[in-house]
Design a protein around this nucleic acid. Structure first.
Lengths: 144, 144
DNA sequence: CGGAAAATCACCCGAAAGTATGAACGGGAA
DNA sequence: TTCCCGTTCATACTTTCGGGTGATTTTCCG
């Protein structure tokens, strides 16, 4: 929508200028240049804001003796941009709670839980809660 | 340079079209639109190729020692009366597959998968697949 | 061979989960 | 102060899950 509106606005502006500044030579070139600059900037903006930061995965294999020595991988959490609340929900999901149970446990609406879940799945790049648990354990976000 | 050349090229193209297709109504708008699209794409391309790769995620894959040491607790399985097929389904559930995906993976109908799931939940005395996974791992039926 | 258990599939229905969208609010940061 | 982010909640809709029931076919064992 924003894109369409800005395009329409520019065309309108162009038409208007066409009648006002017809005396100026190379007006068309100026218009074209202006449009080019504006939309180049728009393109850059689009690319920077509407795409996820592409991440380079570097796998570092670490062997850990037992389950007791679990410590949360804060780096991954921050990198994925998981909030505190989302982390809480993730842990409850891993414990097998339903949305309704989580809602009661955290004293919020089930709708809120669903919102957190959606964000969580998006950030973890998964489709279902079971996958989220699997992924989170592999990433060291929650204990195995 | 590339930027300048493409801009010049487009202006040239515009001029050329101006003499060729003057009969077309709203030609100016078409030019503007074309320029907008082209330079938006250019902007996106610029942003994607001329910026440093965003962030580098270091994933720490934690392998627990008992991945090797894991041996299925056959006693529990027999005690619960789990069949081979049910065990297969259980493992696929733990891997986060949906019923539909499991059906394709095992070359059976989704309805069959649902039947297996139901039996599984009944035998494991759980209500949901997430709980089933949790319970199965605790019981040593599937690796942690 | 006969029967039990397992595996397969179907249908219906309600519950749970997930998607999309929008909105309100407070707390920091620019 | 304005803007962004996290949290909260809602509504509407689609998909997936799970329960219940029943049926047919395979497999396996005595």
């Amino acid at each position: 929508m924003l894109y369409g509106i800005s395009l329409a606005g520019l065309l309108f502006l162009m038409r208007w200028l066409e009648f006002r500044l017809l005396l100026i030579d190379h007006a068309t070139e100026l218009y074209a240049g202006a449009i080019a600059v504006v939309f180049t900037v728009l393109g850059i903006w689009l690319a920077r804001h509407l795409t996820k930061p592409q991440t380079v995965l570097v796998e570092k294999t670490v062997y850990v003796g037992n389950t007791e020595t679990f410590e949360r991988n804060e780096a991954v959490i921050e990198q994925l941009g998981l909030s505190r609340r989302e982390l809480e929900v993730l842990e409850l999901i891993a414990r097998g709670l339903s949305n309704h149970e989580m809602a009661e446990h955290l004293f919020v609406s089930p709708n809120t839980i669903k919102t957190h879940c959606s964000r969580l799945f998006e950030k973890l790049d998964v489709k279902r809660r079971t996958q989220a648990v699997e992924s989170a354990k592999r990433l060291g976000i929650i204990p195995l």
